[in-house]
Amino acid sequence: MEALLKLNNATKRFKNNRGVRDVSFEIAAGDVFGLIGPNGAGKTTLLKMIAGLLRPDAGTVELFGRPVPERFEQAMSQLGCVIEAAGVYENMSAYDQLRQAARFYPNVSRSRIDRVLEQVGLLAYRREKAGGYSLGMKQRLALAGALLHEPKLVILDEPANGLDIEGMAELREAIRRLAEEDGVAFLLSSHLVNDLGTIATRIGIMSEGSMIRIESVQAELWGLSSLEHYAMAQIREDREKRKDE
């Protein structure tokens, strides 16, 4: 199956020597790829590079078969993103914000806006200004913005931030349904490791800017232990290895 996203030794270094180094992996239609790693491992930097917010210093990021800077608008029209804290226009309603976002895409109808608001549970609040929303509602609005144009690939950075139990369950269900039924690919980063283990088809473990492991999600992989324990063991092993070097 053709890769929707392909990273080849993607590298980004900051002045403080943090960033990501030589990361390579692919995501195909229907994949749900979970990124795991401690704070500062480079997960958000990696996601920003893929979404074109940061330029790689070395290596390539290909979206839908082309390097990111090439035909940027065409690539971005098939990508949906929520990266870091969900920014919303506080003095605008959810409906108006999505109506403005819809202008960037062909064929996003008003009924589609209502449908996506219903999917994220905001239909009843569509005319209220986002300034009065809770953190979880803002996160839901950001998710609606990412799913509005029915993208082929969705990047979600800490999507569970601020969501309540019901919201998290709905998000898991929506991701599973979109991936299985519509072949939408997801790239997710989350601190809720075990939660990620229930929806991801593959897991990438990052430590100190490197992708130290990419595994298919199979319970037998980490034996009777949880994904969290497995990931922590991998990260500790990587750190020990670095110390020895």
């Binding site: 917010l53 940027f72 690539a75 971005m76 993103c81 804290a85 920014g87 919303v88 913005g145």
Partner: peptide
Amino acid sequence: AAGTLKLTLLRPIT
């Protein structure tokens, strides 16, 4: 500062 500039930069626009 509000994170809304990023919101636009993540849309299909240079």
